[in-house]
Amino acid sequence: DTINITLPDGKTLTLTVTPEFTVKELAEEIARRLGLSPEDIKDTHNGKTLDPSLTLAEYGITPGSTITLEIK
């Protein structure tokens, strides 16, 4: 299953994830792909900052969802 990550420059990154991924694991994968530190990444969905300890499923993030990435 894939989700879309909207980057600060407007580009989109597509990642393969499972509903059990935590937001922290997602940030780590994004950081790895972009050459950043996971601590520099802030993920938001529907205007809410995502708690790193919760899973994508707990936020109702499903395949095809879009998450907005902010760099701290």
Results as ranks from 00 to 15, higher is better:
Asp1Met: 14
Asp1Tyr: 15
Thr2Phe: 13
Thr2Met: 08
Ile3Gly: 00
Ile3Trp: 02
Asn4Lys: 10
Asn4Ala: 08
Asn4Trp: 11
Leu7Asp: 02
Leu7His: 02
Pro8Ile: 08
Asp9Gln: 04
Asp9Ile: 02
Lys11Pro: 06
Lys11His: 11
Lys11Leu: 12
Thr12Glu: 06
Thr12Leu: 09
Thr12Asp: 03
Leu13Ala: 03
Leu13Ile: 14
Thr14Glu: 08
Thr14Asn: 07
Thr14Ile: 13
Thr14Gly: 04
Leu15Ile: 14
Leu15Asp: 00
Leu15Ala: 02
Val17Cys: 06
Val17Ile: 13
Thr18Ser: 10
Thr18Arg: 08
Thr18Asn: 09
Pro19Val: 05
Pro19Glu: 06
Glu20Val: 08
Phe21Ile: 10
Phe21Met: 15
Phe21Val: 07
Thr22Arg: 03
Lys24His: 09
Lys24Ile: 05
Lys24Trp: 14
Glu25Tyr: 04
Glu25Pro: 01
Glu25Thr: 04
Ala27His: 15
Glu28Asn: 08
Glu29Phe: 11
Ile30Leu: 11
Ile30Arg: 00
Leu34Asn: 01
Gly35Gln: 07
Gly35Val: 02
Leu36Ile: 15
Ser37Glu: 12
Glu39Gly: 15
Glu39Asp: 11
Asp40Ala: 12
Asp40Pro: 12
Asp40Asn: 11
Lys42Leu: 15
Asp43Trp: 15
Asp43Ser: 15
Asp43Ile: 15
Thr44Met: 13
Thr44Ser: 13
Asn46Phe: 15
Asn46Ser: 14
Gly47Thr: 02
Gly47Asn: 08
Gly47Met: 08
Gly47Pro: 02
Lys48Leu: 14
Thr49Gly: 08
Thr49Tyr: 15
Asp51Gln: 04
Pro52Ile: 09
Ser53Met: 11
Leu54Thr: 07
Thr55Tyr: 03
Thr55His: 03
Thr55Asp: 01
Thr55Ile: 02
Ala57Ile: 10
Ala57His: 09
Tyr59Thr: 07
Tyr59Cys: 12
Tyr59Asp: 02
Gly60Gln: 03
Ile61Phe: 08
Ile61Met: 05
Thr62Leu: 13
Gly64Cys: 03
Gly64Lys: 01
Thr66Val: 08
Thr66Leu: 05
Thr66Ala: 04
Thr68Asn: 10
Glu70Lys: 05
Glu70Asn: 09
Ile71Met: 09
Lys72Pro: 11
Lys72Tyr: 11
